[in-house]
Amino acid sequence: MAEDDRQLVLKCREMQEQAYQDLMRRYEGYIYRLCQSFINNREDALDLTQETFIRVFQGLETYQLNRPFKPWLRQVAVNTCVNFLQRHSSAPLFLDQPVADGNLTLADTLASREDPAQEIEWQETGRFLQEAINRLPQVYRLLVVLRHQEGMSYKEIAEETGVPLGTVKTHLFRARAALRKGLSTYYAWEE
């Protein structure tokens, strides 16, 4: 029977290598995919996966055993990715003012690919939508992933990212309004 996370953490604290192996095998895919969905870059996602686990293992003593492990792990990953985005952004990442509105146009979420010749033919909505999501500003994408993939509430997102609640809401609204416009073009909906 598989050991539960808590038992593995205890064994990690006792420096049992097998426990590290088991814990990583259990969660490395999840963390990699999470980072990849935030950042949309394979190499960066690998680096961030590494950074996350190093931090997690460093912080094992601070982990409270009576809490579920996965959300704690996710918190470290989100934190690591937000810090990464912050380091690579010239302006503060999260502003209440709509600085990003200028970028967040239909053109951005749709056809403005660097090389029009490489434009792929989208065969299904999911693929199309993934492209549109990848064109969102990274901060918007991060919030969309936490909401729709991780199923977190506005409040939980605010707590986990440190972004003010009002900003979480407005960024989510804008991101999804842009995606919805993209869908509209894709399906040729009449507005």
Partner: peptide
């Protein structure tokens, strides 16, 4: 990467 991380983590 997993091996690297575990090695680093245990050493640290």
């Amino acid at each position: 990467l997993r091996q690297q991380i575990i090695h680093q983590a245990m050493r640290s």
